[in-house]
Design a protein around this nucleic acid. Structure first.
Lengths: 242, 242
DNA sequence: TTTGTCGTAATGTATGTACATATTAATAAT
DNA sequence: ATTATTAATATGTACATACATTACGACAAA
């Protein structure tokens, strides 16, 4: 076993097991369908109880990352779920694809204290300052999205980076941060005065609101991002199979 | 305790506990924030072990239905309705999971001629009549979604089906149609007079608009579905990896 | 060749136990 | 009145153990 579990760590054993399993899941052989060592065996190898290991496996099964079958064993889900052409483009890449020229109307970088929810997501204290980047973008003649991004201090951004370049490329090249997982929530909202001013629309106009939580390989939080899109200038597409 | 657990049933105890908890979640007092009996107590009442009960609770916590806090106890999560893209639940199934009672305010079935776009999607001629189903649904006191579904004539629906039952289950059981792929587009819109009246909101209010194209295994079109959701009563969540 | 049966290997279900940890609430000390 | 201290309580973590269920594979019977 390449990895092991630290019984003296303050991190719960089942959590350690979980991250360990995530690593295994990413390995090529398991990606290709190799079955995991069976629960009893694996528990013995890691020197934890089967129950504890199972707690970790269960979570991943629930997430759809693993599938278990009696007698057959536990394998990485050959999902292809969420397949789709990685809708993992940053905004400017998205728009380039659609052939729409982009302009940055505003690009504003500040250091702020996170509110409680954000501190919680980043797993830091609220007195730790984090980098906030705000943007207004759109067609040359009309802004159609307001963005705000918050970055985890772990990344080590200084605020002097060139945020005009594609974001995730920059993070990958200059900071070795590879964003691999995003969770998004989309809803409709009414534009308040702040957003209305940014997008040059009337207060009360409908906007598409998007929250995005971005994680790296090890499920560590990287970025929190919100976006207000002028109605009808943005359509979100989802493809799913079962 | 109003409910109990049958130790002789073939249904696993944790599964019984789970459905029992779902019932509790639906009860008004718990909906309103009353804390559940504590684990040890509840386990005793149900005559199952705490571990088993915990298995059930964990699942519901993972689903986001319950929240637990040390010392404070376990309560129903106060969250907006949400839809996970990979789950493939129909609307009523979604709501049942969230523990929200559903009411059909209107359910209207008609035969209509498809417009050109729809005829094109279904790959039929515009003079071929198709079944249209309209629905207004929501909580008993407030409607929050207007739906319209169009079904491909190939399926053989008569219009006399019981559309109150879960849709995809019905299609699968009675018509051997298995929906496996959906493509959705989500955007924000302004409620027109028609939608405003259906959802009992002001004209011009923001709504979340969703188009859904549903296909079967062989990529043949099954259903075209549009939905207007009252803002903030519906959050669309997407999870993606790369 | 096909069918049946049976052992085995994996997960599934279930219990009992113990101690840790976080949070609230009551109480005591300042 | 405010601030520590402490006790109580609920969830959190972790273990050992036992038996049930399922499904594959091998071997035997038809």
């Amino acid at each position: 076993m390449r990895y092991s579990i630290d019984h003296k760590s303050p991190m719960p054993l089942h959590a350690q097991a979980e991250t360990l399993l995530r690593k295994l899941i990413n390995e090529e052989e398991y990606q290709n369908g190799k079955v995991f060592p069976n629960e009893v065996e694996l528990a013995k190898q890691l020197a934890i109880s089967r129950t504890t290991l199972r707690q970790a496996i269960n979570k991943l099964v629930f997430e759809g990352l693993l599938v278990r079958k009696k007698r057959a064993g536990t394998k990485v889900a050959q999902a292809a779920v969420c397949s789709k052409s990685n809708n993992w483009l940053s905004f400017s890449q998205e728009m380039k694809v659609r052939g729409i020229p982009i302009k940055n109307f505003e690009l504003h970088v500040t250091w702020v204290h996170p509110d409680e929810a954000l501190a919680n997501f980043f797993e830091i204290k609220t007195d730790r300052k984090i980098l906030k980047m705000e943007r207004v973008r759109g067609k040359p003649d009309e802004p159609f999205v307001y963005f705000a991004s918050y970055f985890h201090p772990r990344i080590g951004l200084t605020g002097d980076e060139d945020f005009k370049k594609p974001l995730y490329e920059m993070l990958e090249n200059d900071h070795s941060v590879i964003a691999t997982l995003s969770k998004e929530e989309i809803s409709a909202k009414t534009a308040g005065s702040f957003i209305a001013a940014k997008l040059k629309i009337a207060v009360g106009s409908p906007v598409l609101f998007r929250k995005r939580f971005v994680f790296d390989h090890g499920e560590r939080p990287i970025e929190y991002n919100i976006g207000y899109y002028k109605a009808d200038s943005f359509v979100y597409t989802v493809e799913s199979t079962r």
